[in-house]
Structures are given as structure tokens and as C-alpha cells.
Amino acid sequence: MLHILIADDDPHIRELLRHTLQANGYLVFEAADGKEASELLTKQQIHLAIVDVMMPNMDGLQLCEEIRKYYDFPVILLTAKDQLADKEKGFSVGTDDYLTKPFEPQELLFRMKALFRRYQMVNSEKLTLNDTIIDRKSYEVHCNGKLLMLPMKEFELLAQLASYPDRIFSREELIQLIWGPDFNGDDRTVDVHIKRLRERFTKRTDDFHISTVRGVGYKLEVTKK
């Protein structure tokens, strides 16, 4: 199920969007301002954000800029402003689309689906990192033309990181996503599995590398070739 963030200080807009998105099978997370949305992003996996421009504490442009810096998912700016200069500001900070209020909920759904296709995030079974291919259906990794079978948790961890290149995942977040909320171990488990992944791939390929973000967690970076 795809996770959608709604960041808007208007409760009526949030209610409309929540109803529309839930009716179409999306899981919705809500924030009443940019700061609340920013905090939510550190705790929840989000696949697309619908962000109002005019919000207290942190406006939509600032939030969009932050998302572009730390995450990799599409953003739709939602605003009452329809001036070309305002749209220019939105696109300059990294929004993927721009929808002006009032809007038709159906149009929003069309735009979301178009963005998901562009980001290749809907039911994508194969992740391609240069010459490394991660097949989430068969649980196989093809690296430089050779088949590599990983232990289940290592594969799931690699696939999670590879699904969102350059996004920083905290150890706690990875524990929740890979091992689940009932896991009784500590977050050193993540460190051990990351070490094993590095040992497996460092000598095999330079297609990608997993970086440690001090005091936070890990991110996967794809090598530009």
C-alpha cells in the first residue's frame, strides 16, 4: 500500500483529501503545518506528498526543499495561488507538480498516478542500480551478469535502501520495516547486516555503495556512470 502525506493547515482540505485517497486504496498521514510534516517524515515511510504552500511554522516551499534534500519521492504543491511567478518558485525548490485550489479530486488522482509511473514506484519488481539488478519477485540479485543469492533479511534490507536512493533511513526505521515491530533485538542488528552487504558487494561492483550517516543511519547511493 502506498503511503501519502497530506500537509495542509486547512482541516477541510485534509478531510477531503483523506476521504478521496483512502477510497482509492492509499494509506494517509496528515500534518497541519510544515514542521509537523517534517517530523512525521522521520518516522514514516512516505511515497508521495501533497503539500500546501501557505502553512505556519514551515511553509510548503521550505518543506518541499527539505524533501528534495533528504528524500526521493514525488511532491505535489497545492495552493490558491495561480500566478506564474508562484509556480516558478514551486518548481525551483523541486516540486514535481502544481495544483491550484479549488481542484477536482479526480484530477489530483490522475496527477498522482502519472507521478508514480514517472518514479517507477508502483509494484516495481526490479530495481536497477547500473549493472546490478535486484529482483524483488524472485529474491535474486544479478551483479555484473552473475547471480547472487542473499539471506532473506540482507536482501530485504538492500531492496529497501535501493528503492529510495539517497534517502537516509534511521536504524530504528529499518528495524520496523525489515524486522517488524515485534523484533526483540537492538539496532546493532542493522549494523551487522549492513557490514555483511558491504563485504559482499564492495569487491564485486562499484554500481552503488551504502553510506553511514553519523548519528542517524544509512543511505544507498548509486554511482553515476
Results as ranks from 00 to 15, higher is better:
E140V: 06
E88C: 00
F110R: 15
L84W: 11
E156Q: 13
E140T: 11
P74W: 06
L129E: 05
R117S: 14
E104A: 09
L177W: 02
F110W: 10
E107G: 05
G90T: 10
D131F: 00
K113N: 13
D97E: 14
K137W: 04
S92I: 04
K113Y: 10
T132L: 09
T128F: 08
Y164I: 01
A159E: 07
P151I: 06
F103D: 09
L78W: 06
Y98D: 11
R136Q: 15
T79N: 08
L157K: 08
R111D: 14
R117V: 03
L147V: 14
R117W: 07
T128Q: 13
R118N: 08
V141Q: 05
V141F: 00
Y71F: 12
E156W: 11
L147T: 13
S170G: 15
R118W: 09
E172S: 14
M121S: 14
L157I: 10
E88P: 00
L161W: 06
L84T: 15
L174Q: 12
T95L: 01
A162K: 04
K81S: 11
L147H: 04
P181N: 02
K126Q: 15
N130I: 04
K126G: 02
F110E: 15
P151K: 07
E172L: 07
G94Y: 00
M112D: 10
S163M: 12
I168N: 12
A162S: 11
Y71E: 10
M121V: 12
P105E: 04
P102D: 08
